[in-house]
């Protein structure tokens, strides 16, 4: 995405750390991610699920 799009796509408001991680990775346009979940990072997984 262009820098203008990236700036206008920034989220704001109240969110958990896992969602903030996912939002940064979305803005960075990362490719496929690989992992196996556990309780500690499940808010991150939850944010990925809702972004798909």
């Amino acid at each position: 995405m262009s820098e203008t799009d990236r700036a206008s796509n920034r989220p704001s408001g109240r969110m958990n750390g896992g969602r903030a991680m996912a939002e940064m990775l979305r803005l960075a346009e990362v490719g496929p991610m690989f992992g196996m979940g556990g309780f500690q990072l499940l808010p991150f997984y939850d944010a990925l699920a809702s972004s798909a």
Binding site: R10, G17, G18, A20, M21
Partner: peptide, 13 residues
């Protein structure tokens, strides 16, 4: 840290 919440601004990202 992952489960905790915060009020973020767009500039934070």
């Amino acid at each position: 840290v992952c489960h905790g919440s915060h009020d973020f601004t767009a500039e934070d990202f």
